[in-house]
Design a protein around this nucleic acid. Structure first.
Lengths: 278, 278
DNA sequence: TCATGACTGTACCATATGTTACACTATTGA
DNA sequence: TCAATAGTGTAACATATGGTACAGTCATGA
């Protein structure tokens, strides 16, 4: 029992009482629903090769008061198809595992971005950099930590800047370096201004942030958008950590030969200082 | 080099020269592109709470001759998404998809644990604690950061112990306190020994670790098992961060009313120190 | 053959829509 | 404090749009 019958259903219902012209319209519209979702009466009429009134009559036959109403119906249908499949499920079953869903969606979108976007754009400056400086806001701190932790294993000269070290260390950065900045809405003033300073001194910027409206975006072309879900009342850093680790793995692949050597070195260093328990 | 820049790209390009109203429009449109694809100037203006001319000006700022042209662009973008919704599967780099799978599985198991296990066992000592001490190994550092960051918002006396502070601070811990320890295979010697010392001085231990064989397990009954997936050649901290944030949200629910007062204080502090950019 | 009815296009209208010019307001800098 | 400027809304306008009445066309049956 559907509350809203689909366009196909409506055409089927109208069925027998459709005139030849109606059928041509139906055919066109079923093949390309955007004609109806986006187009005007005139446009659709032209496409089908008929007159505007015929289109309106078609809408009447389908049980609508006019073209406008039919269009509204089709647009709703199209909108539903646009949202992510998992979201569709969530909307259907109102479970209270919303945090779980939100995180899964966010993770999915992270991988989507990594595959779709030109990730090499983000990786290249980090690989080539003389020194790498990492900055982060509050919710993104965990991501920055994960990034530094991983990146330190595969290349030298990785520095994590926090509130204390930032003012001292900033002067050591210069042309040939790259700064990787993690920050999200309620963008931290200190982080933004520091990034701006770095950009001005010729440091290449790679930004992980939450959208084109972020103040970080205007400082670089190498940025990537991450959506931040909520766990309970707080913003989650899970997706940030995920993208951070993905970046590291991409960089590792790029560095190839040099990488294994360095990891071995670090591992032996750790073992010699008895950092590990087993 | 994209032939047709996406809406996101366009907003990013316009960047700095967007007025506050422009940004409100951009935000609305990025969150819900159908507003632009389907809606009229009036409708969008109403949704955003502005006037029609502002919407048209927004289109101009993005480099279009008018709203109509901007709409055409967005419709094309939306149409593309309708035709091939499986754009995600396009690139099949096996490393990514397997990492994706691994992370999703790990996240799933985290939520299973949280729902299945008696999570109250972990939450209770933290809620009741006089002071909370947080320790972590290397891969779990990000989780510890996330945990501290969240927990500090909702209760006082949360201390993150790192290699430097651990020897000094350890003596401040005692009966009535709780230590939350994150550590995984290749257990960090410093963390394990410190935890043992804490346990001996009557500090309650909550451990997030990787199984019953962990040296942390023999120090407490309040522990929970997390599986660590791999992203490329590295261990991922994503599940640790997830469980950390889930713990925080559970604790927040437990503390209920007491938290709001503290959060308000922190907020006003942030405001007076102008911590944030916007 | 004509009459009937269904089907389709033309002509027209009220309204909604995108757009522009202009006026008002708030903010900035001297 | 005042002038200048950027930002935003009001008013007006030409056009596009959905809708309807009416006329023309075609097929069918007597």
């Amino acid at each position: 029992m559907k509350k809203t019958p689909s366009l196909t259903d409506l055409v089927a219902m109208a069925g027998a009482e459709l005139t030849p012209t109606d059928r041509r319209i139906a055919q066109a519209v079923l093949a390309e629903p955007t004609l109806l979702a986006f187009g005007t009466v005139s446009h659709l009429a032209d496409q089908v090769g008929t007159s505007r009134p015929s289109v309106v009559r078609f809408a009447h036959k389908l049980g609508f008061q006019g073209y406008t109403e039919l269009q509204r119906q089709v647009r709703a249908e199209v909108s539903r198809r646009l949202v992510r499949p998992s979201e569709r499920i969530r909307n259907d079953e109102t479970t209270d595992t919303s945090a779980h869903q939100a995180i899964n969606d966010a993770i999915d979108s992270v991988f989507e971005i990594v595959q779709g976007l030109d990730i090499a754009q983000l990786v290249k400056p980090i690989v080539e950099a003389n020194q790498v400086w990492v900055l982060s806001g509050e919710t993104s701190r965990a991501g920055a930590i994960a990034f530094c932790s991983g990146l330190s294993m595969i290349r030298p000269n990785v520095h994590l800047l926090d509130d204390r070290s930032i003012s001292n260390e900033l002067s050591n950065a210069g042309s040939g370096d790259t700064a990787v900045v993690f920050d999200f809405y309620r963008y931290r003033r200190l982080v933004v201004t520091a990034t701006r300073l770095l950009a001005q001194s010729g440091v290449r910027i790679v930004a992980i942030t939450d959208g084109p409206l972020s103040p970080l975006v205007e400082l670089t072309d190498n940025w990537c958008e991450i959506s931040v879900p909520a766990i309970g009342p707080f913003d989650s850093s899970v997706p940030v950590v995920a993208i951070a680790e993905l970046l590291v793995s991409k960089i590792a692949r790029e560095l190839k030969g040099k990488t294994t050597e360095r990891i071995d070195r670090i591992e032996s260093l750790w073992e010699s200082t008895e950092t590990f328990f087993q």
